[in-house]
Simulated scan of single mutants.
Amino acid sequence: MFGLLFRQYRQLPCAASQARQFSTTNALNISRKPESKIRIPSKKALAAKARRKAALAVKEEAKLLKLPLTEAIAVLRAAEVASPNSIYELFVKTELGNGTAVPRGRVNLPREAKPRAEDKILVFAEGRRAEEARKAGAHIVGGPELIEGILNNRHRATTILCIPSLIRTITPKLGRFLGPLGLMPSERRGTVTEDVAGYIQRLHGTSEWRADRAGNIRAPIATMQFPVEDVVTNVHHFMASVKRATGNSKEADAADRKLKSSGGTRAVIPIKKVILSSRQGPGIRISDY
């Protein structure tokens, strides 16, 4: 009986023969990420793309309507016929690069659109230079003792000048405070000078303009009551000042002459567009500025 059962068991199919056949896989192949197929463009390709983009921008710019200055004035006068006291506003868009200083300057318009605000001048000077500054009309004159008054807003000024011998004394404490306000004395702008009295005399009869951080400049330029010739003259005077400050003028200013004498050059800030507008009228791009 036992022998019969043993022979039947031997005739059964082997369990191992019915077992599933497993294959082994290298663990390194599972964890390895597929290689990236993203194509990185070369410098030459990027430059070509930039040129195509610039060419497209030029074409789009050419499609925009632009008018000569005299025609733009006529359109705005028609729009403001019921508001003779309305003011023309000039908008200038400049393109600031990385590390480019915000453009600013002073202009003496032949005919002011608004009463000129009086400048309050503070001068860091000592000795004979301080006396000259007081005689020239400076409102606040002193040495390093003025620093605390500026920091706590006891001394407020629209223009701050400094003689060269004091600039290193005031810069550590006032640089970060006055810099963002555009009031820190600077050799590039001519506000660090030995000729303090001469600078103050040049301030009389002029008004300051300054771009914002985006490079936009806005200024009231005339009123609707002005003859067309006066409006045109004011626009040309203002744009001449902007071109000098941004390096777009053939006429070199004092800062340019100083840089050239030291072998340096000033970066040119491109002027992208000039728009003349009024309170109720449209903004009109000017073609001949």
Score class of each variant (00 low, 15 high):
Leu5Met: 11
Phe6Ile: 07
Leu12Arg: 09
Ala16Arg: 15
Gln18Ala: 14
Ala19Cys: 08
Ser23Asn: 07
Thr25Ala: 14
Asn26Ser: 15
Glu35Ser: 11
Arg39Asn: 09
Arg39Val: 14
Lys43Pro: 09
Arg52Pro: 04
Lys59Gly: 10
Glu61Tyr: 15
Glu61Gln: 13
Leu64Tyr: 04
Val75Gly: 03
Tyr88Met: 06
Leu90Cys: 01
Lys93Asn: 06
Thr100His: 05
Asn108His: 10
Glu112Val: 11
Glu112Ala: 10
Glu112His: 01
Ile121Tyr: 00
Arg129His: 15
Arg129Gln: 11
Glu131Ile: 06
Arg134Trp: 07
Ala138Gln: 02
Leu146Glu: 03
Leu146Asn: 09
Ile147Gln: 03
Glu148His: 02
Ile150Glu: 02
Ile160Trp: 02
Leu161Arg: 00
Pro164Glu: 02
Thr169Gly: 06
Ile170Leu: 03
Ile170Gly: 06
Leu174Pro: 00
Gly175Ala: 14
Leu183Lys: 00
Pro185Asp: 05
Arg188Pro: 03
Thr193Tyr: 00
Glu194Arg: 08
Asp212Met: 05
Ala219Trp: 15
Ala219Pro: 04
Pro220Lys: 07
Pro220Asn: 11
Ala222Lys: 00
Met224Gln: 01
Glu229Asp: 10
Asn234Ile: 01
His236Met: 11
Phe238Asn: 01
Ala240Glu: 09
Arg244Cys: 13
Ala245Val: 06
Ala245Met: 03
Asp256Trp: 08
Ser262Trp: 05
Lys273Ser: 14
Leu276Lys: 01
Ile284Glu: 05
Arg285Ile: 11
Arg285Thr: 15
Ser287Asn: 02
